[in-house]
Design a protein around this nucleic acid. Structure first.
Lengths: 119, 119
DNA sequence: CCGTATCCGACTTGATACTG
DNA sequence: CAGTATCAAGTCGGATACGG
């Protein structure tokens, strides 16, 4: 296997558990900054550790951006997708289209207002 | 997290290491059936166990089909993508387009005759 | 030659408690 | 609130040996 393969390298980062779902969660927010606890609340089974790990990783990859307002107590950390990240949701959208066609009968997810992934 | 989420469920199966690359390897073959050893040879670092595991999993998912010719010795197992599998390569294509734009400067992979993933 | 079974270490994820 | 620390549990992947 060639480590220079674009698909291979990108999958290495994209295929981590929860990653794509976090991206979708932020995508739902549009331009709005979302706070850690808000994201966590929406994804009820993710643990803070994993969410924290993934957010840092996504920030390193340039897919999301973070801002901290330390003037308030407690301080606020907020996140949103970068342009690079928003374009990544196209991939998720394709996966969804494919899965709906071939694999899963899931009307809720197929509808435009799916509360889970909103694609 | 909702286990009924289409994206989530599909990622669970797609995100396994090597999976997408195996799909691409078969995609290169077009309609042609490919043998185990032929696939293995093309992906030089994969071990037989992993390849075997993934092929079985992909077959269960309906993404590839398998045929066995037991009239010869040794018998031959051959694989190719189903229609469902061929459509999945669109996802890989999108990942590649995205990665080339944002992440990786990889002219070999960008060209149409990339020997690794041929997308 | 085409795989499968077993074993094992490395890595990943998860549960829970805790801190500034 | 926004994480981090700790440790347990699970998963993955690789080497090797083996059977049809």
């Amino acid at each position: 296997m060639d480590e220079n393969c674009t698909v291979y390298r990108t999958m290495g980062f994209l295929s981590k558990k929860w990653t794509l779902l976090i991206i979708l969660e932020l995508y739902k927010g549009g331009d709005r900054w979302k706070r850690f606890s808000e994201i966590k609340r929406s994804m009820k089974d993710i643990t803070p550790k994993i969410l924290s790990d993934r957010l840092r990783n996504l920030e390193e990859e340039g897919v999301i951006e973070r801002r901290v307002d330390s003037s308030t107590v407690p301080m606020r950390s907020e996140y949103r997708l970068t342009e690079m990240g928003r374009e990544l949701t196209e991939v998720a959208k394709d996966i969804k289209v494919w899965a709906l066609k071939w694999k899963i009968n899931n009307p809720a997810c197929a509808s435009r207002d799916c509360i889970v992934c909103v694609l």
